[in-house]
């Protein structure tokens, strides 16, 4: 039997190259006006970027406080995904649970009686704006220490009263300037800024800093839903 000649093949090499070139061009043009492969680009480069961010993060290093005179009360814009939820501070409870030895709940008075920390830091939004803000509240690591994480707990989930949800790496959560705050610019925190209790930290982008936090859950793994904006396509680590 004779072997088939090149021209008998279904696709010659030249034809295949022509076709792949054409379909490649179609892919490129078809991407115009859409997100143009940003998801694919992200899946390749975000792991690299995240490992650099983890490397840069020194869990003990304090970000220098800015002077009180640097506070920009007008610059802190209000962002939320569906308005401000109504919360009664009298009946508010924060629940800390998950992969911990001791789950507990605290009311606002109990939270405010814990040793508090104040910081003046730059709050940086993913949109590009930033505002110098003074925040006052309880270091998250004190709450986590009270709950005694089980070995293997590596992530912290935050649930908010409005349905917003977030997750952080434990290292960033244990940073001394990652606070659960009830005070802003010398005043009690206002409802639109996250009262009665919100996350605040200089080392993460604004969308990581959940407002109206009602539940803190330690986990050993990251679940498919990592955060409201992350699930729409934003970076998860979002370290500053």
């Amino acid at each position: 039997m004779e072997s088939p000649s090149i021209s008998d093949r279904l696709l010659s090499r030249r034809r295949l190259l022509q076709l792949s070139g054409l379909s490649g061009l179609g892919l490129v043009l078809g991407g115009c006006g859409t997100s143009l492969y940003s998801d694919q680009v992200n899946s390749v480069f975000e792991p690299l970027n995240q490992s650099v961010e983890e490397l840069l993060l020194n869990p003990q290093k304090l970000i220098p406080n800015l002077p009180l005179s640097a506070i920009e009360p007008e610059a802190l814009l209000i962002n939320s995904f569906q308005g401000t939820p109504k919360i009664d501070p009298q009946s508010y409870l924060l629940s800390v649970n998950g992969d911990v030895e001791r789950s507990f709940t605290l009311n606002l008075a109990e939270l405010q009686s814990m040793p508090s920390t104040s910081m003046v830091i730059r709050h940086v939004c993913v949109e590009g704006w930033a505002a110098v803000v003074q925040w006052g509240g309880v270091p998250l690591r004190d709450l986590i220490a009270l709950a005694k994480p089980k070995p293997g707990a590596k992530y912290v989930y935050f649930k908010s009263a409005d349905g917003y949800y977030e997750s952080w790496d434990l290292v960033s959560s244990m940073h001394p300037q990652t606070l659960m705050v009830y005070q802003k610019n010398g005043q009690p925190l206002s409802p639109e800024n996250g009262a009665p209790l919100r996350l605040a930290s200089p080392i993460k982008l604004g969308y990581k800093q959940s407002k109206w936090v009602t539940e803190i859950t330690l986990t050993k793994q990251l679940y498919p839903m990592t955060g409201y904006w992350e699930d729409k396509g934003y970076e998860w680590f979002a370290g500053l």
């Binding site: 680009v41 975000e46 970027n49 396509g233």
Partner: peptide
């Protein structure tokens, strides 16, 4: 205007920006 943009929305723009930066 859109013809000068890459990424389609803020997250997409950031993904491209923080890849091309390398």
């Amino acid at each position: 205007p859109t013809p000068f943009l890459l990424g389609g929305w803020l997250a997409g723009g950031r993904h491209w920006h923080f890849a091309a930066m390398w």
